[in-house]
Amino acid sequence: MPKMGLLLIILLLFMTAFFMASLTYAISLCLPNEVIYEKMMNAIVLPIFFLSTALFPTDNLSGELSIAVNINPFTYVINVLRALILQGNIAARDIIFVLILLSMMCVISLSWALYRLKKETSL
């Protein structure tokens, strides 16, 4: 695997983790206690995970399941990571699309987390 591919993999994993950390922090600031937080995170994370291509390919999907998998942003991240790991290269447009998608998601989740933090600390 070329060094550029490895750097892209690290960047994509970092951006995904950053997005999820910001999102979970913002959600935790909206909820009254940790019991509700655990249930809420299970209700969010598990469907996102199972409706991505992490466990199965999209080749034979049809109907509503195909639509749900295709609107899941993590489907695209996982597909790019899989292509980088298995093939060693990927089309630049796919990488750029995923980087823009993750950048937007990171900005939105961090902005929401900072907004919630300011609201909580300005009591």
Results as ranks from 00 to 15, higher is better:
29 L>Y: 03
93 R>A: 13
26 A>I: 03
74 F>Y: 15
117 L>A: 10
4 M>K: 15
15 M>A: 09
21 A>C: 08
26 A>N: 02
110 L>I: 09
49 F>D: 00
25 Y>Q: 12
107 V>R: 08
13 L>H: 00
67 I>G: 00
18 F>D: 10
13 L>P: 00
78 I>R: 06
81 L>M: 13
50 F>K: 11
115 Y>K: 14
87 Q>P: 00
57 P>L: 00
88 G>K: 08
104 M>K: 00
20 M>E: 12
36 I>C: 04
108 I>Q: 09
69 V>H: 13
55 L>T: 15
79 N>E: 09
4 M>H: 09
109 S>R: 02
27 I>M: 13
65 L>N: 01
93 R>E: 11
60 N>T: 07
27 I>T: 15
84 L>D: 03
25 Y>L: 10
88 G>E: 05
39 K>E: 01
69 V>W: 11
57 P>Y: 02
83 A>M: 02
59 D>H: 03
88 G>I: 04
67 I>W: 14
19 F>Q: 11
98 V>K: 10
73 P>N: 08
30 C>E: 15
73 P>V: 06
58 T>P: 01
109 S>Q: 05
37 Y>D: 07
72 N>K: 09
12 L>G: 11
66 S>N: 10
38 E>N: 13
58 T>C: 00
112 W>D: 04
46 L>N: 06
117 L>H: 12
75 T>G: 05
70 N>F: 03
51 L>N: 10
9 I>L: 15
18 F>T: 06
101 L>E: 13
21 A>I: 09
111 S>T: 14
107 V>N: 05
27 I>V: 15
82 R>A: 03
39 K>Y: 14
59 D>T: 03
23 L>E: 10
98 V>E: 13
39 K>S: 10
105 M>D: 07
91 A>R: 07
82 R>N: 09
98 V>N: 09
11 L>F: 08
10 I>N: 01
29 L>T: 07
116 R>G: 08
36 I>H: 09
77 V>R: 00
94 D>N: 15
94 D>C: 09
90 I>G: 04
40 M>W: 12
112 W>P: 01
107 V>S: 10
64 E>D: 06
111 S>E: 09
74 F>V: 08
109 S>V: 04
11 L>T: 15
90 I>H: 02
72 N>D: 04
92 A>E: 10
2 P>K: 12
122 S>C: 05
87 Q>F: 07
52 S>L: 12
21 A>E: 07
66 S>C: 02
22 S>T: 01
81 L>R: 03
106 C>V: 15
93 R>F: 15
117 L>P: 00
75 T>K: 14
113 A>P: 06
1 M>W: 07
64 E>H: 12
118 K>C: 12
43 A>N: 05
123 L>H: 13
102 L>R: 13
114 L>K: 10
2 P>R: 11
87 Q>A: 07
